[in-house]
Amino acid sequence: MSVDTSKPSVACVIVSFNGGPWMADCLRALRESTVPMRVIVVDNASSDDTRAIVAGFPEVTLLPQDENLGFGRANNIGIARALADGAQQVFILNQDTVLAPDCLEHLSREAAADPALGILCPLQLGGDGAAMDPTFLRYYVAPHATAYLTDAVMGHAIAGHYRAHALPAAAWLFTREFLEQVGGFDPLFFLYCEDDDLCARARHHGFGIALVPAARFRHLRGFHAPASSMSSSQLLRKRRSRLRSIVVNDIKRPEGRFGRNAWYALAGQTLQSAQQLFVYFNWVEAVAGWAAVLRVLPELPRIRRHRDACLTRGAHWLPLPDRLQGHQEQ
C-alpha cells in the first residue's frame, strides 16, 4: 500500500454523497498511487452504504456531515483538515473517478517545476479510459487549452503542462500557498460554477491554472443523468439551480464594477429566458431562468460582500481546525 498516514506532503479530499456504486473503486485506485498520501472523505449525509464502504479502508479519514453541504463547502472542510495535518499539496477528487497510479506524480512534478501554478488538472478520460471525456474536450480543452490540443493533433511533442483559462474541478491539485492566499470554494455556490469562481479568483491573484496531460484519470460521471429521464419539475429545479449559479458567477467575477456586473447578468438572463419562451417555446428553460433571477435579487448584498472579500488575499472560506465538524458558513 502506498498510503502514508503520518505526515503526508499530499492529501486527497473526496466529497461523497450516495457514492456507494463508485467509492470502493475510487479508494482502491488511490491505494495504487505512486505518491504517498493521506485520504480524507467528507460525506454529505449519504443515505446509502457509502460510509460503510469507506470504513472498509482503515487508512482513510472519514468526516461525516449531518446534512448535504454541497460540493464546495464540503471540500473546504476536507481541505482545512488536510492543511491542519500539514499537507503541502491538496488533491480534490470526485467520488465517481478512477485515478491512474502515476497521476499525482505528474501533477506534483509540474507544481514543483512552476511555483506560479496554483491549480493543476489532470487529463480527464471517459469512463472506459479509451478517449478524452467529451464534455472535458468540448467545454474546457478546446476553448481554454488550445495549445495542448494543437500539439496533440499535429503530433508535436507534448509539454509537461499547458496554461489554461479555466478547468473543471473533478480532479484538481492545489498548492498550499494557493489555498492560503486565495482560499477555498465560495459557499455562495452549492453546486455548479464553484470551480469557475475559484479559477477567476486564481487569475485575479496571479496564480496559474494548468492542464497536465501526462496525469490522467477516468471520470465515470455517475450523477449525470440524461435530461430525458427527468420529470419536468426535476428538470426545472436542476436548470434553475444551474442558471442561478451562472448568474451569481457573472456578478461576482473580479473584473468590472459590481453594479455593472449585476445589471448585465440579471438583465441578460431575463432576456434569454424571454427568448427561450417566445422564440424556442421552451417554457422549462424560460421559467427556470426567471426563477433564478428572482432568487438572486435578494442575495445581492451577500454576493457583494463575498466578492469584496475575494478581491483580497487570504484563506477565505476555509474553516478553522477546531470547527471542522459540522462547519457552517460565518
Rank of each mutant, 00 (worst) to 15 (best):
M1Y: 12
A11P: 03
V15L: 08
N18V: 15
D25Y: 12
P36M: 05
M37G: 14
D43V: 05
N44I: 00
N44H: 01
S47P: 01
T50C: 06
R51I: 03
A52I: 11
A52G: 13
I53G: 08
I53W: 08
V54S: 13
P58H: 04
N68F: 00
N75R: 12
A87G: 06
V90R: 08
V90D: 02
N94C: 06
D102Q: 04
C103G: 05
A113E: 03
G118K: 02
L120I: 10
P122K: 05
L123S: 09
Q124W: 09
A131S: 15
A131W: 13
F136H: 12
A142F: 04
P143T: 06
A152V: 14
I158V: 15
A159Q: 13
G160D: 08
G160H: 05
G160Q: 05
H165A: 12
A166E: 07
A171Q: 02
F174N: 03
F174L: 06
T175N: 01
F178Q: 07
E180Q: 13
E180H: 10
V182K: 00
G183R: 01
L188M: 06
F189V: 06
F189M: 02
C199F: 03
R201A: 15
V212T: 05
P213I: 08
P213W: 04
R216H: 14
R216Y: 15
F217C: 05
R218D: 03
H219P: 02
L220P: 00
L220T: 01
R221M: 14
F223A: 08
F223Y: 09
A225K: 05
M230W: 12
S231H: 08
Q234P: 11
R239K: 10
R240I: 05
I246T: 12
V247T: 05
V248A: 13
W263D: 13
A267Q: 13
S273F: 02
W283R: 09
V284M: 09
A288P: 02
A292F: 01
R295L: 15
R302I: 12
I303K: 00
R305L: 09
C310K: 02
T312E: 08
R313S: 10
A315G: 14
H316R: 02
R323W: 00
L324F: 06
G326Y: 04
